[in-house]
Design a binder for these strands. Sequence first.
DNA 1: ACCTGAACACCGTTCAAGT
DNA 2: ACCTGAACACCGTTCAAGT
Lengths: 232, 232
Amino acid sequence: MAAKRNGAESKGSGRRGASPRSGQEPRSEPPLSLERIVATAVDLLDAEGVDGLKMRRLADRLGSGAMSLYWHVGNKEEVFDLALDSVLEYRGPSDIVESRDWRGEIVHMLEDWRASMLRHPWTASLLPRRALGPNILSRLELLSKTLSRAGVVDADLNVAIWSLWNFVIGATTTRANLDLSDDDRAAAQQRLTGLSQHYPTIERSRLLLDNDWDGAFSKGLDFLLDGLAPRQ
Amino acid sequence: MAAKRNGAESKGSGRRGASPRSGQEPRSEPPLSLERIVATAVDLLDAEGVDGLKMRRLADRLGSGAMSLYWHVGNKEEVFDLALDSVLEYRGPSDIVESRDWRGEIVHMLEDWRASMLRHPWTASLLPRRALGPNILSRLELLSKTLSRAGVVDADLNVAIWSLWNFVIGATTTRANLDLSDDDRAAAQQRLTGLSQHYPTIERSRLLLDNDWDGAFSKGLDFLLDGLAPRQ
DNA sequence: ACCTGAACACCGTTCAAGT
DNA sequence: ACCTGAACACCGTTCAAGT
């Protein structure tokens, strides 16, 4: 309820706070800033996962008191939102002017999307439950534009986008979580072979042991694109 | 690490009837049991969401001391696992003998899957991050069998299953979470229209306002199936 | 075998206060 | 404007102990 913080907008590009004499203090910690907080949060999440991000630990890494964060940030949820979006910035060509190969473009965009998420596995748990930040929206916009230009009619556009979104989200969350713990995999294998009479088909196809995630993603994406916009 | 509990198997099918609406009126609580714990956990999750499940609160509803749960259950994670799987029991025809319409069967299975999850929105956050219980595996087995019978060659089987899995997971998590908070939706709309020059395409297609989730799911599923196994 | 209260080790956040 | 320590209200879980 405190009337203090209101920077919930993330200030768009941030960046304005460049101290005139910046770069003078290699020794001591630079002052707190939204940018530093977000960047450090990403590091922490990379290192310790979703459950590893605690406000006190984050403050520790920043060399500040735990409560100092709350001047820059409303609460922990906001840290999640900002970290998530910051990691999903699209660095590919922001616009494709002459897209002869629209399908290749889409495949590239989605594989980049997936790769960005797998580089930071915690995004898989967060993305589906959080608000969409500007970088995420940019990706959707570009995807949308490319599909539209590729000839997908307006009536099918949203279905196409959500289908691709679903595919990426599902693939990354599954990949990030099923793969993370080897002991779980081993246990699952044990259980499956033990109960192979109950699940003969998926046992035979080695569904849970198949770890060609990359191949499954690109092949599945191909199938989906075949359905969405068959090559003429 | 205590050597006590080991009933991690969930005892097969969970959740059979018993006192339907016996909240906490009668003073004579039945004794604690895994089944009661899981069923009550589901109720609690339905009512309060993932964050609403606390061991103390769960014990309250069961009319027991908070620590009593730990005799039946290893920890909170296990409660999540058991609740999740118990809710995903498939009640459809457990086997399709003469499946003329395999495609219809698959659509039915997946729409039932989605419906089961949306009836308990918290499953959307849990399913991708947890171990696969027997009911989930049964669904995968049946799906696998049907696809195989439909003529999907073994080499494509795993890709097909994971693609459909991805689609269902992505669709339900997105639906459950984006739809949950109306204020978020309003905020997103505001932001989007305010920044419509940045995201003209998705603004024009009203991507974030389109709430025909059911239609998007079945249409998208149709597209995906077209790609996976084109009707001859 | 089953259940329990007290207690520990946290964690997010409020508050009153410093500069 | 920015930062802080002390303190509060939790929460999962251990433990020693009850029946």
